[in-house]
Design a protein around this nucleic acid. Structure first.
Length: 894
RNA sequence: GGGCGCGUAGCUCAGUUGGUUAGAGCGCCUCGCUUACACCGAGGAGGUCAGGGGUUCGAGUCCCUUCGCGCCCACCA
């Protein structure tokens, strides 16, 4: 006889590392149908996800943990379904973030990027990337990510750089890219333009300053309010509402800019709100987006008063050289002295700050590159509207539409060094631009070699927009690109729907003519256990690496997956991770029992045992589970699917079936053999269903199960199993005889009887070890058939258990119980107060009667006519059962 | 200003074509270390599903509305 034993405890740390190495070495992360290898079959369906590339210098946080968990689940599920799956990993160069880190390092060394120069700076940044860059991908492996690491990409590697270049040149040639002075968001700290999305607005206390705009050559003035007095230096008009009677008389006249003495016109514009502030608005087209618009409408001059570090420039007269906030103070002081100040009042400002640097963003006019986006946006809208792309959850489609409908041209140039250099050269001779796929040596217009490349780089998101296809070889028509593109799901956080998802959709449609993916699945933010956003200052950051160390990767993954609903934020509580660690442990122990059972079986018995009621029931349950899980996966309800499997495994399989199986195994012979088979088959299905959630523990147990069974006499059952669970087939519903609904209902009745007895024992504090005799009254024969199970699970004395078809009167000195149509009598009367016991029965009767009343009412209502017939029938049956119970209880009460 | 989401047991949350007596984990109470598991087992307490109205035979689920909370977009000086 063979025996195979598992260690008593599950060591997840050791296991996870070993299993991951085994998977990777086995090549299981690569698509089984690879277009670059012989034997490729173009008809096998691919399933592809491009990883949302983490910042190359990043550290693993819970945001990574949730996306890896979800994407790995999607990938593993499809892999088991037989798709040729590819999950493309990679990292993002993250322009600003990475550049900042290297700059900080330089500052520590007492240097700056301007000192070391562009070339040296880039060398150091690449060095930084090589040193620190691998960390995040190692940490992602730790989460169990089954990415194809042989296809790993980096947004600045050679192929992707070519893709970026191609994309830029195509847009340029199509006239969809332009350069020009525009009002943009300037980050004085980073000294670069940033996009609208990179500006964060925050309410902060501030001041509203009221002052006089004196009319030229007059003592009359127009009162004006501003929150940023220093911008007075750049004013080129004062605007009033055309219908405002207070100021109508001044329209067309000139007013004098304080201190500077410039004369500027009073103009009329309906943009002005009459009842806000003083009802008159100073116009600074060079430093305010709204004023910029108004300035355009009225043909006003645009004066820039700040330099790149937000210091006042030569246009600021006496304030030149001052920082913008010093200038504000000084100017206001001077105006006070000049008698131009009216008042100050406290005012809550909505201050724009740089997402990265945190300093106040300054709107400035600057020469930048833009992508004309409206046409792309239209296509992006259509793709979602016509269902070519589906967004999960659906309500984010509205958010997506809203953004695209109001989109502005995209400022793609950044005054940084780390990133993709803009492929445009300026000619010193003829002044023309040359934009080319290959670095030019001469001007394309005049042939002069006095050309110089634009110093700016592209917004990081420009390369991200190409990610789903650039990683597959585009613009080359590589075998990967042809087979794997478009990709299947795009799974990412809703916070980058605009930054990234929308831009990828537009990019995909623009450059490949196809939507880059079919489904967008958006997950929420991971918050702490009380729903608070995690932040270092609050100190509530959960480090996924520590959680994995302590409780295991499977526990972390399962927690994130089960706790999350598409598009909704998830609260991560360590308590939950702990209970899911317990679940992994439970699986392990189920595995031990099943393996013991399998190993214990001798040669196959001559006759085969029929399924017991419990066998039929558990098989029915697991088949229903397969069906439900499949449906939920189709609907992206991963959390619910996981919960359902968890409940099945713990409540049905472990708590009920395993307890009964122990009895059946003890019977030996064909019964034990048959039970071992059932245990193995049901557990196998459970492990397969669970594998996308908790890959490590399921892989490990399954391996043991497979080997143990292989060494046992049951080995024929594992004949078709592959080497590893991760490529085993996803379970399908199997039509076996013997698990029809009636058996499920019958088992339910057995459970009710067992629960009733357990309940009474607990209530009456019967010693747990005491095996009670009992009389069970059941005309159907079911209880007779299940006597052993009932006795074992409710701890009755098997040898003193009598099951009768009927009973004339209640046996003396017994307590009576009613479970549905079944009566149970336990010889406990002397242990308890008879009055108390009558009260108990009376309560049960009252409950049954109220149910009878409820159901009779229901069935007398329109429900009986209008509800679906099976539903009505079900209620009728229930009513009958309650009536039967009530009758029995009444009889017992006498 | 525009849009979106949420309010279900003490805590954190599930609950998708509307269909029994609304679930889970944690916490709490009572028992029990029986040869898979005390990272466990058995039993139990705890909810007028934010309030009001409507549609329906039937509403946590759909519609309207009030209150409270959160988020996104826009950025009135």
């Amino acid at each position: 006889m063979s025996s195979y034993e598992l260690p008593k405890t599950y060591d997840f740390n050791e296991t996870e590392e070993r299993i991951y190495a085994m998977w990777e070495a086995g090549g299981y992360f690569q698509p089984h149908n690879d277009p670059n290898r012989p034997g490729f079959d173009p008809n096998v369906k691919p399933f592809v996800i491009s990883i949302p590339p983490p910042n190359v210098t990043g550290e693993l946080h819970t945001g990574h943990a949730i996306f890896v968990s979800l994407e790995d689940l999607m990938i593993r599920y499809h892999r088991m379904k037989g798709y040729s799956t590819l999950w493309v990993p990679g990292t993002d160069h993250a322009g600003i973030a990475t550049q900042l880190m290297v700059e900080r390092q330089l500052i520590k060394e007492g240097s700056r990027r301007e000192t070391v120069g562009r070339e040296e700076f880039l060398r150091r940044t690449w060095q930084w990337k090589e040193e620190k860059g691998g960390k995040i991908t190692r940490q992602i492996r730790r989460l169990g990510a089954s990415c194809d690491w042989t296809r790993e990409r980096f947004t600045m590697d050679e192929g992707l750089t070519r893709a970026v270049r191609e994309a830029f040149v195509r847009l340029y040639e199509a006239g969809k890219i332009y350069r020009g002075p525009r009002l943009i968001n300037w980050s004085p700290g980073l000294k670069t333009a940033v996009s609208d999305l990179e500006v964060i607005y925050a309410e902060e206390p501030g001041t509203l300053y009221y002052f006089k705009y004196m009319l030229a050559g007059s003592q009359a003035f127009i009162p004006v309010a501003t929150t940023r007095p220093e911008t007075i230096l750049g004013d080129t008009a004062v605007a009033v509402h055309p219908d405002d009677e207070r100021y109508q008389q001044y329209i067309g006249k000139m007013v004098v800019v304080p201190i500077l003495g410039r004369e500027i016109p009073v103009i009329a514009d309906e943009y002005v709100t009459r009842d806000f502030g003083s009802g008159a608005l100073k116009i600074t087209p060079g430093h305010d987006p709204n004023d910029y618009e108004i300035g355009h409408r009225h043909g006003l001059a645009m004066i820039s008063i700040l330099d790149k570090e937000a210091r006042v420039n030569e246009n600021g007269g006496p304030y030149a050289g001052l920082d913008r906030f010093e200038a504000r103070k000084k100017l206001w002081g001077d105006m006070q002295a000049a008698g131009l100040v009216l008042k100050e009042e406290p005012y809550t400002l909505n201050v724009p700050r740089s997402e990265r640097g945190g300093e106040i963003i300054e709107p400035m006019i600057s020469e930048q590159w833009f992508v004309e986006i409206r046409e792309q946006a239209e296509k992006g809208l259509t793709a979602v509207k016509n269902g070519e792309i589906k967004i999960v959850p659906e309500h984010f489609e509205k958010v997506y539409f809203n953004w695209l409908e109001n989109i502005q041209d995209w400022c793609i140039s950044r005054q940084l060094w780390w990133g993709h250099r803009i492929p445009v050269w300026y000619c010193a001779e003829c002044g023309q631009q040359t934009c080319a796929r290959q670095d030019p040596t001469a001007c394309a217009h005049c042939g002069s070699d006095k050309i110089e490349q634009d110093p700016d780089v592209l917004d990081t998101w420009f390369s991200s927009a190409l990610w789903p296809f650039s990683t597959l070889g585009w613009p080359e028509e590589t075998p990967d690109f042809k087979y794997f593109y478009p990709t299947s799901y795009m799974e990412t956080g809703y916070d980058i729907l605009f930054f990234w998802v929308a831009r990828m959709i537009m990019g995909g449609l623009e450059f490949t003519g196809q939507a880059p993916f079919k489904t967008v699945y958006l997950h929420g933010l991971v918050r702490d256990e009380h729903g608070q956003k995690m932040s270092k200052t609050k100190g509530n950051v959960v480090d996924p690496l520590l959680v994995m160390d302590e409780l295991g990767t499977d526990a972390l993954r399962f927690t994130l997956l089960v706790g999350s609903t598409p598009g909704k934020d998830t609260n991560l509580s360590l308590k939950k991770v702990e209970s899911n660690r317990n679940f992994a442990n439970k699986l392990w122990n189920i595995g031990r029992l099943v393996i013991n059972a399998v190993s214990a079986q001798e040669n196959a018995p001559a006759t085969q045992a029929d399924w017991t009621l419990a066998d039929s029931w558990i098989w029915a349950r697991v088949q229903n589970l397969v069906r439900d899980v499949e449906r939920m996966f189709q609907n992206f309800q991963y959390g619910q699917a996981g919960q359902m499997i968890y409940d099945f495994v713990w409540s049905d399989f472990a708590d009920w079936y395993l307890e009964i199986a122990k009895q059946q195994l003890a019977e030996g012979g064909p019964r034990a053999w048959q039970t071992a088979e059932t245990l193995l088959r049901v557990f196998d299905i459970s492990l397969r269903l669970l594998h996308p959630f908790t890959p490590f523990v399921t892989e490990e147990i399954w391996g043991h199960l497979r080997r143990a069974t292989h060494q046992s006499h049951l080995k024929s059952l594992v004949a078709g199993w592959p080497e590893v669970l991760m490529i085993a087939r996803w379970p399908e519903i199997r039509a076996e005889q013997g698990w029809e609904a009636q058996k499920v209902a019958n088992f339910g009745l057995v459970q009710d009887v067992i629960r009733a007895i357990r309940n009474l024992r607990a209530e009456k504090s019967v010693k747990p070890g005491l095996k009670l005799p009992a009389i069970i009254v059941d005309a159907s024969g079911l209880m007779k058939q299940e006597a052993r199970t009932i006795a074992a699970l409710s701890n009755l004395d098997d040898s003193r258990l009598s099951i009768l078809d009927s009973l004339d009167s209640k046996p003396a000195n017994h307590l009576g119980l009613v479970a549905g149509p079944i009566e149970i009598f336990l010889p406990l009367a002397e242990l308890v107060d008879p009055a108390e016991d009558r009260a108990r029965l009376a309560r049960e009767l009252a409950e049954a009667e109220s149910q009878i009343a409820r159901l009779e009412n229901l069935l007398a209502s329109d429900f009986a006519n209008k509800a679906p017939a099976p539903l009505v029938q079900k209620e009728r049956e229930k009513l009958a059962v309650y009536k039967e119970s009530a009758g029995k209880i009444k009889a017992q009460l006498g």
